[in-house]
Design a protein around this nucleic acid. Structure first.
Length: 655
RNA sequence: GCCGCAGUAGCUCAGUGGUAGAGCGCACCCUUGGUAAGGGUGAGGCCGAGAGUUCAAUUCUCUCCUGCGGCACCA
């Protein structure tokens, strides 16, 4: 006897082993028709799999929360079938689900074209109509390897050979087409539905290793219903409008051009945003016990040899000859006989030089050194991406030199600063990651144990949830990474916090302890925003350009209805500026509709409309970005209120 | 760096083997109007760069550059 407990608590008895399909059938015919899979004690399984002991069971239908993953994975198989039928000789490799869809990597000499995608979609729909049934067989490992090798599916054979030895080799069939897969799958292709779309083709390395062959990846999306699919496509379109590169142009914040690849030309409005952020960060750092420094841009290559960067990161550094000027018959020339200099790719070695001046006592620690440090890194060209991945960037960098027993406190202190700043920015969706020891590392395991524990403890005691990024720490120590998400869901590291036991050693940083003995300080590398470039890009996307008043480059536009109000408008702008507001005047001979539209597009948070009436009554008609309502208030009151609202969060009266 | 796609006016894009077009924006004129496009006129282009094929290339081919989407990378 097998007792099956259903979600409503009822129990059904079966004489022996029963399948999910059988259970659904026993409940109702219509449920049996709709059933996609079955959840047995929390495990999603095939409908045709046998359940031979007591269990709680849930029948998964299309509207179940687990259905979407099943549909997407089946759609990936469906696509692979279509591809192999249309393009014989194409090998399948792997095809997992991802956020909002799936992909499948194919090995083939020719790439797929956009036309190919349309053809594949068409064939996929045909296969759905054919309603090919699903079944699963468990094969002997060697048989499976031989079978797939015989078919020319060498990648598949390789995957099977690498399966853990205790794992069954499951082969799923959809009609005759079959693939190695863990499952589970829908009962037949009909159940997949047609709410799918193939999105794009891309290259991807086999097993994610750039030394391997490049495969052709097709990305697709799949949903329960056409309505969901449509909503998703619309969401993508909306996301495109939030793209910081587009908004940067529309709002006249910055531009980039090929002569300065990966570097930013900040326009006046964009630089106001930068300056506001910088001034804010500077106040926060001053309050938190940092001292600010400015260190050289160019340092001798020998310095980088000592710091270890020359050996490890030479490829990413911009190197310039320290040429010696001289004169020959032709006039002044430069010779390359001087030393090599490199633009700093990081500020840390320079900060150690500042720390190293004079002799530090244990009483001096912790020393917190901050710098809005401009660094250059020669990134792979394919990696560059608007403001989010650049070659010249300014970090809100800082290095804390402390004793080992101060590490936990300093970490907590940093987390408090970090949370304060991000909540001030209105950026609350942050993914915390603890990156642990990599294979290649310096220092012994006892030190790593302590360091990782210190970071984990600080996170936990600050009440933060975090993921562990196994093996992704720096070679000199573990790190905390703070990730933000862009408009289309890609995540980017913004802030960082790293423990370093190595660089103080290499560059001989020391302090004198109570006993008068020389000790190594621990070095903490930390950035809150990360870089101004990336943070600004993410900020723009987060707000879709509608920045909070204190960050908006233009806070108010005073726009006239007729020229009768020109003088009053000028006076109003002057008063606003005197109150510290970034106000602009618009007395152009244009209709008010036109002005409102234009300044709304430019994402100006407040438009103050003035006509004869307002001038007469000493009022302004305020209109907030994105709202239709107008608020006619006394001018002086409006200015006071706006001026207070425009204060940076740390400058607002507490209460 | 790798795979694919793209590059035409400031922006968004159309187009053609015989050296180019629209809308928006911009300039000027008319219009002084109550909260997301008033009307007219006009100026803007070495059709990404180089080479090749051709009587003729913005158009076809190749190389390069840059951008975009992924992949890899991200101290």
């Amino acid at each position: 006897m097998v007792a099956i407990t259903l979600p409503d608590g009822s129990i059904r008895q079966f004489d022996g082993a029963v399948t999910g399909a059988g259970i659904a059938e026993s409940i109702s015919k219509s449920l049996a028709k709709k059933a996609l899979a079955v959840k047995v004690d929390g495990d999603v399984r095939d409908l045709f799999g046998e359940i031979d002991q007591d269990a709680s069971v849930e029948i998964i239908t299309r509207d179940h929360e687990d259905a979407l993953d099943l549909i997407r994975h089946d759609t990936a198989h469906l696509m692979a079938q279509a591809v192999q039928e249309l393009f014989p000789g194409t090998q399948v490799t792997i095809g997992p689900n991802i956020e909002d869809g799936f992909f499948y990597d194919f090995a083939r000499d020719e790439p797929f074209s956009t036309d190919d995608l349309a053809a594949i979609e068409k064939r996929m729909a045909e296969i759905v109509d054919q309603d090919r049934p699903t079944r699963m067989e468990i094969w002997a490992r060697q048989d499976a390897i031989t079978h797939f090798n015989a078919l020319g599916e060498t990648y598949k054979a390789e995957i099977i050979a690498d399966l853990p030895s205790d794992e069954d080799v499951k082969i799923y069939f959809h009609g005759d087409w079959h693939d190695l897969c863990r499952g589970p799958h829908l009962p037949s292709t009909k159940h997949i539905g047609k709410a799918f779309k193939l999105m794009k083709v891309a290259g991807a390395y086999w097993r994610g290793d750039h030394r391997n062959a490049m495969l052709h990846r097709i990305y697709g999306t799949a949903w329960r219903t056409d309505k969901e699919l449509k909503a998703y496509l619309q969401r993508l379109e909306e996301a495109e409008k939030r793209d910081h590169r587009r908004l940067g142009r529309e709002m006249d914040l910055f531009h980039m051009q090929s002569e300065a690849q990966g570097s930013v030309f900040w326009h006046p409005k964009g630089y106001i945003l930068w300056r506001e952020l910088e001034a804010y960060m500077r106040r926060r750092l001053d309050d938190d016990g940092y001292v600010e420094v400015k260190t050289p841009q160019l340092l001798d290559s020998k310095f980088w040899e000592k710091s270890g960067h020359w050996g490890k990161f030479r490829e990413n550094m911009f190197v310039v000859p320290d040429e010696i000027p001289s004169t020959d018959d032709e006039g002044p020339v430069l010779t390359g006989e001087g030393n090599l200099l490199a633009l700093k790719p990081m500020n840390c070695p320079a900060h150690i030089q500042v720390f190293n001046q004079g002799i530090k006592s244990y009483r001096d620690l912790p020393v917190r050194i901050a710098e809005f440090g401009c660094v250059h890194r020669n990134e792979a060209h394919g990696a560059l991406h608007g403001l989010l991945r650049v070659r010249q960037m300014t970090q809100d960098d800082g290095h804390i030199f402390c004793r080992e027993d101060q590490v936990v406190d300093e970490t907590r202190r940093f987390l408090a600063l970090f949370s304060r700043v991000y909540s001030d920015m209105g950026m609350t969706e942050i993914a915390y990651k603890l990156a642990t020891r990599p294979d290649m590392r310096a220092g012994d395991d006892a030190v790593w144990d302590r360091a990782e524990k210190a970071l984990a403890d600080a996170l936990t005691s600050s009440g933060l949830e975090f993921d562990i990024a196994e093996g992704e720490g720096a070679f000199y120590g573990p790190k905390l990474e703070f990730h933000l998400t862009d408009a289309i869901g890609r995540t980017w590291q913004a802030g960082t916090f790293q423990l370093d036991y190595v660089m103080p050693e290499r560059l001989d940083a020391s302090y004198v302890d109570e006993a008068g003995a020389k000790q190594r300080p621990v070095m903490l590398h930390r950035a809150v925003l990360g870089t101004f470039e990336r943070f600004t890009g993410l900020l723009i996307e987060h707000y879709a350009g509608r920045l909070p008043l204190w960050l908006a480059p233009v806070q108010v536009v005073v726009a006239t209805i007729t020229s009768e109000a020109d003088a009053y408008a000028e006076e109003t702008v002057a008063a606003m500026r005197a109150a510290g507001l970034r106000a602009e005047l618009d007395i152009r001979n244009e209709k008010i509709n036109y002005k409102v539209r234009e300044h709304s597009h430019a994402k100006v948070p407040v438009i103050a409309v003035v006509g004869a009436r307002e001038a007469e009554e000493q009022k302004v008609s305020l209109r907030r970005l994105g709202q239709k309502e107008q608020n006619v208030v006394l001018r002086d009151q409006a200015i006071d209120a706006l001026a207070e609202e425009a204060l940076a969060p740390d400058l607002r009266p507490q209460g």
